[in-house]
């Protein structure tokens, strides 16, 4: 797996500089970014994933090892994105959601088998035909991550991914997600408000405060 390299990134809104970052995230490493609302954390993720709103401007390069990806359209970057909400497509069943994310490789049966194997790995093998709206919060979170993993991303971005889960569940899902990204050796960038998230990630923590990097 490649490293996710953020090369001299600067994000600006109009004349105002929001944040700047220059770092490399190694395969399997989870880098946590913290800071109050409005410092541009989510904008940073949007830029890396390819959804920067025209209100912002960004300079610098995003690379996966040597390959520059910030000029590519979002769907060709292979950067998996997990939001606060699981965002399972409500018009597809669980299986359909996973199939939507999965890379088109192999025959239909092979792909179907991979989906079921993935569901089995998280104990949801009987949920293939279920309406996502009938799943519990933890189940939705699991399916959402499976969907991202099946798309074979080369890096993962987490946008406050655990903040909407119940306190009891949060810890469990958190550990499971970090275990998965390490297992697949994916460079991971997490944005969060929650110090427990940062501690559980166990990697470097960068705290932004009004555009200045405070701790590292």
């Amino acid at each position: 797996m490649a490293s996710l390299i953020l090369d001299d990134l600067v994000i600006e809104q109009g004349q105002q500089r929001l944040l700047s970052l220059d770092t490399t995230i190694a395969p399997g490493e989870v880098l946590t970014i913290m800071g109050p609302s409005g410092v541009g954390k989510s904008t940073l993720l949007a830029f890396i994933a390819g959804f920067l709103s025209p209100a912002f401007r960004a300079r610098g390069r995003v690379k996966l090892d040597e390959k520059r990806i910030d000029m590519l359209p979002a769907e060709q970057r292979h950067v998996g994105l997990l939001f606060q909400d699981p965002l399972l497509f409500p018009h597809l069943d669980v299986e359909g959601n996973l199939a939507f994310g999965m890379v088109r490789e192999g025959s239909r049966q092979q792909r179907c088998a991979r989906i079921h194997e993935a569901l089995r790995s998280v104990g949801l093998e009987t949920f293939a035909k279920r309406d996502p709206a009938t799943l519990s919060g933890g189940q939705k979170a699991r399916v959402a991550l499976l969907r991202v993993l099946l798309s074979q991303p080369r890096a993962i971005l987490l946008d406050e991914p655990f903040s909407k889960l119940d306190a009891g569940l949060r810890d469990e899902i958190r550990h499971w997600v970090f275990e998965r990204v390490r297992h697949y050796r994916l460079p991971t960038l997490m944005v969060t408000h929650d110090e427990a998230d940062a501690r559980a990630a166990g990697g470097r923590i960068i705290t932004f405060d009004d555009g200045c990097r405070v701790t590292s």
Binding site: A49, H78, F100, S151
Partner: peptide, 13 residues
Amino acid sequence: PRWSQQARSLGAG
């Protein structure tokens, strides 16, 4: 807009 963003980050054109 996150619906489309989610779909595109999963590789959908």
